[in-house]
Write a protein that binds this DNA or RNA. Structure first.
Lengths: 253, 253
DNA sequence: CAGTGGTCTAGACCACTGA
DNA sequence: CAGTGGTCTAGACCACTGC
């Protein structure tokens, strides 16, 4: 069998499970294990390699963590399909766009499911970002955003209640938030967005359908009206395996 | 003891190790476990909670994966210090800047260590991004980029050899690559950068000093000269816990 | 229902840290 | 040197998948 040729050295400084992981990773990258194909069962691997099942599982967990393998309970362990789906037509870069527009420009169908909606007092973070005076209320909206029906991001939006006026739960169900603001002449004119990477925690992972620890692209965005008043503070956590940002840069130096 | 109050239900649908992790996470977030403080030893926790050490380790691994805990071999398990360091003065946004400039604008001292330098044939990816005709050679440079001496990113740069001319190993040691190009009148005028999040693999993790699976911010950038010829293809992998990108967006709609 | 991954156990030894 | 996390074992049972 292909895999038993993996030579392990229990005396080596690198742990056995890392050796197993490296061996498998190499076979995946070299194409000896094709994308989508199933690996031998854990017990089979353990027997073939002469190690315990726990050790095999440690190796598989490592590779699954890196996204190389996909594990399906009751079904098997598979080589994760090709790297990235498709890059798409270059979009309007550096322009403010809503999630919906963004997804559409990639040729997919955007969707949203409201996970929470409330009118409440802002957190310290929200109050600061929106430059609210103490006591001012905000609307807080948490939505699962989808592309072609698949979970893509969790988006938390916070808006100053005084600025947007009455906002009913039904209104935020499906419409784009930007469309809703636009209808009230509250279109943002400028925004600053921070991006960073973090690991999915126990709350976000199940919502996005990824394993705990999966890499997420996290963004914080503050949007201002033309007049300079903050209109939205939004945090979003995108699945790292399904999304990428594009930005265009102009030469300065 | 504080921790033994963690009530576990082995009959529950949520696995015991998740229950343990959630309990610990809650105690960390609520401040009952202060940042920097040490957790009880694994064997101690296992005894206190009435579960096996393996189960405790699974819980700790989960939290460590999320960055909540830091484990030090031979020393102990600690609550990871505060969240993010400091956001810094708003920088020139949407402008091309080198790693060095970028780090300096955050008030830190940039550094570089060359991990590899070669003159070779381009990969398919590189050839496509740089619009090279078959057979054209490239310089390929891999550097560990540091901020205040701490590893921040792995940067892989590829440049068309024909365009940059002779490039000696010594030249790329410490200088900014942009400075070097600038000196040859090869300053890029425009660039497009893609950003996404991925988990650190077995190669990158040790170089950056993070555990396998840690979230990394990955970027691909292609830079063009004013004339439209591609001058650099660069891939970088930033530590997710030490870096964030800032972009400014202008209202379109 | 057979086969798969998911969870859990008890116990052993190694490797590193720090007083 | 005592205490810590890191690795590894053999074996058990559960929960899900798909025929």
């Amino acid at each position: 069998m292909l895999l038993s040729s993996l030579s392990l050295d229990s005396a080596s400084a690198t742990p056995v499970y890392v050796q197993v992981a490296q061996g498998l990773a190499q076979r995946i990258e070299s194409g000896q294990l094709r994308a989508g194909s199933a690996l031998p069962a854990e017990r089979e691997l353990a027997a073939a390699l002469g190690v315990s099942r726990v050790t095999v599982r440690q190796a598989l967990a490592l590779l699954s963590q890196q996204g190389l393998l996909t594990r399906r309970h009751g079904s098997g362990t598979f080589v994760t399909p090709p790297p990235r789906p498709g890059e798409l037509p270059s979009r309007t870069l550096g322009l403010l766009s809503s999630f919906s527009e963004d997804v559409r420009s990639r040729g997919q169908v955007p969707g949203a499911r409201v996970l929470g909606f409330e009118r409440t007092r802002p957190s310290a973070q929200e109050a600061m970002s929106l430059a609210l005076s103490p006591g001012e209320l905000v609307y807080r909206l948490r939505r699962l955003r989808t592309a072609d029906g698949e979970p893509l991001a969790i988006e938390d939006s916070t808006l100053p209640a005084a600025l947007v006026g009455e906002l009913r739960p039904e209104e935020v169900q499906d419409a784009s938030l930007y469309a809703l603001l636009s209808a009230r002449a509250l279109s943002p004119a400028r925004a600053i967005r921070h991006l960073r990477a973090l690991n999915a925690d126990l709350t976000l992972a199940p919502l996005l359908g990824v394993p705990v620890g999966a890499a997420l692209l996290a963004t914080d965005r503050v949007s201002w009206l033309a007049g300079g008043r903050p209109i939205e503070y939004a945090r979003a956590h995108y699945r790292g395996d399904r999304y990428d940002f594009v930005m265009e840069l102009q030469g300065g130096a």
